[in-house]
């Protein structure tokens, strides 16, 4: 589980609580800004996460690779535009490097869908492919059960599906998901809660809608 990246510092000497940034990537970002070759460390840290997010969104390895490549190239090219400061619209504690990176990935995925000439793969059709691509780890369920779970998730509306993937696959906090999706933390909590209700109903019916 990724730890919280924002937190309340000890009360300052003046007495009032003071909210500070605790971006764990600060040193890596600073290094990459000084020398772009140092971006490699950030790339290695987040490659699998970005790729996985793209794969769950698009259900195709090649498209996921394309989105991942565009995301990291855009992040490298625009690193000077990254601001560690949270924006009020993002709620408490939002913009860290990971949130920023996933916002880029989200936009690249949307652009990929918009510009691709061929018919996009519907989430429900992609479900089987995604489940095929998921490496069922030791002690986990059978592939069929994994496919059932993913189909239930794939049937969700896009924003709920995205929130579930960020929560369970990327193990993001509510604040981070809020930052990525551009919603309030409360809205994200309700999104996930409702998504889980729907998934629970589907799974109780044996994976049927």
């Amino acid at each position: 589980m990724a730890g919280p990246v924002f937190g309340k510092a000890r009360p300052s000497e003046e007495g009032g609580p003071r909210v500070t940034h605790l971006d764990r990537d600060r040193s890596l970002v600073d290094a990459a800004r000084r020398d772009p070759a140092e971006f490699d460390a950030l790339y290695r840290r987040y490659l699998a996460q970005v790729y996985s997010y793209a794969y769950y969104e698009l259900g195709d390895h090649h498209e996921a690779e394309d989105v991942t490549e565009r995301t990291f190239l855009a992040a490298l090219a625009n690193l000077d535009r990254f601001e560690e400061r949270a924006r009020p619209a993002d709620g408490d504690g939002a913009s860290t490097f990971r949130v920023w990176l996933f916002r880029i990935a989200r936009n690249v995925v949307a652009n990929q869908r918009r510009t691709q000439r061929r018919r996009p793969v519907a989430p429900i059709e992609a479900a089987a492919h995604v489940a095929d691509g998921v490496d069922v780890e030791a002690g986990a369920a059978t592939r069929d059960e994994a496919a059932d779970a993913w189909r239930a998730v794939a049937r969700l509306p896009a924003d709920r599906r995205r929130a579930i993937v960020l929560r369970f696959v990327e193990e993001m906090s509510t604040a981070e998901i809020a930052g990525v999706l551009g919603k309030s933390e409360g809205a994200v909590r309700v999104l996930i809660h409702r998504a889980l209700r729907t998934v629970a109903r589907d799974l109780d019916r044996g994976g049927r809608p």
Partner: peptide, 17 residues
């Protein structure tokens, strides 16, 4: 909800390039 959460945590795994 608890069962669904446990199930998703178990079955939605990260995909590696």
């Amino acid at each position: 909800l608890r069962r669904a959460s446990d199930r998703l945590r178990r079955d939605l795994t990260r995909v590696h390039p």
